[in-house]
């Protein structure tokens, strides 16, 4: 068995890399795949919090690299789903504690036993980023419909393109606010995709449920009623090769919205 190594990256901080990693990982595990999540944000680890595993961590990625434990000992099993494991980052060290070659070796070892290895990348384009992408052959670039996030995503895409090992990369637009888009105060997903000219793998609406789910330490995909949870589930299905239509969050819903949409189309033609 050779598992797929997917790095989740963004360039800019705070756009939702870790939330995305936790949710896609959980959704993939729920579908029956064996998944390892690796947190490479050494010194600023958070993936354990989002999964509610912060009290179970004994060994970290740095302990594995420095041979204080075996790789299998450092993998922490998820509370609910035995298919999901976490390899946490060390909190007391910095990014230089793990080299690109070392992470690559770890990914190769994990590929033998797991279907998916998801690497949660730190923000920035320095050492931490270069290390995180070293073992991956696929990438998911997380962005939001904001200028700074899109610009950073463009830079990241440029760096991913230059890396031969990365065979494919896809865009995930996070924190989309349909109301702002309708009011013409936020770039639409189509515009972001057009500007970055990159294939889309997911559109996640802004959801206050993300905050409460983080508070509880339980990824939002476990909440059947949440729109963001549904959107993350769809991303996981797309990763598994299914064709799932994107959630219609841009489309007008009310009668007045539809009339507005109609008029704006006429104006665009003229």
């Amino acid at each position: 068995m050779t598992g797929r190594v997917i790095v989740i990256t963004s360039g800019k901080g705070g756009v939702g890399k870790t939330t995305t990693s936790a949710n896609i990982g959980t959704a993939l595990a729920k579908s029956g795949a064996k998944v390892v999540l690796i947190d490479t944000d050494i010194g600023l680890r958070n993936l354990d919090l989002l999964l509610g595993l912060e009290n179970r961590i004994v060994y970290t990625l740095v302990d594995v690299v420095e041979e204080r434990c075996k790789l299998k000992q450092a993998l922490v099993k998820d509370k609910k789903n035995p298919n999901l494991c976490l390899l946490a980052a060390a909190q007391t060290r910095d990014k230089t504690a793990v080299s690109a070659e070392q992470l690559k070796e770890i990914c190769e070892e994990l590929q033998e036993d797991y279907d998916f290895i998801l690497v949660d990348c730190p923000a920035g384009i320095e050492h931490g980023f270069q290390t995180a992408i070293s073992g991956a052959s696929e990438a998911i670039v997380v962005t939001t419909p904001e200028m700074s996030a899109v610009r950073d995503a463009d830079r990241i895409i440029g760096l991913l393109e230059a890396k031969e090992e990365i065979k494919s990369y896809k865009l995930l637009v996070n924190r989309v606010r349909p109301n702002l888009i309708k009011a013409n105060d936020m770039m639409s997903v189509d515009e972001v995709v057009d500007i970055l000219s990159c294939n889309l793998i997911g559109v996640i609406p802004e959801d206050t449920g993300i905050i409460t789910s983080t508070n509880r330490g339980e990824p939002i995909v476990n909440d059947e009623n949440s729109l963001a949870g549904k959107a993350y589930k769809n991303v996981a299905l797309r990763i598994l090769g299914e064709e799932v239509p994107f959630l219609d969050i841009d489309e007008p819903h009310g009668v007045i919205d539809k009339i507005k949409h109609f008029f704006s189309k006429i104006k665009a033609k003229a």
Partner: peptide, 22 residues
């Protein structure tokens, strides 16, 4: 009221600025 597209809406400004800077 019915014309949703405003020429100088912040979205258009953001999009244009971003295209230029990229």
């Amino acid at each position: 009221f019915f014309q949703a597209e405003k020429g100088d809406s912040s979205k258009v400004i953001a999009s244009n600025r971003l295209k230029l800077v990229l």
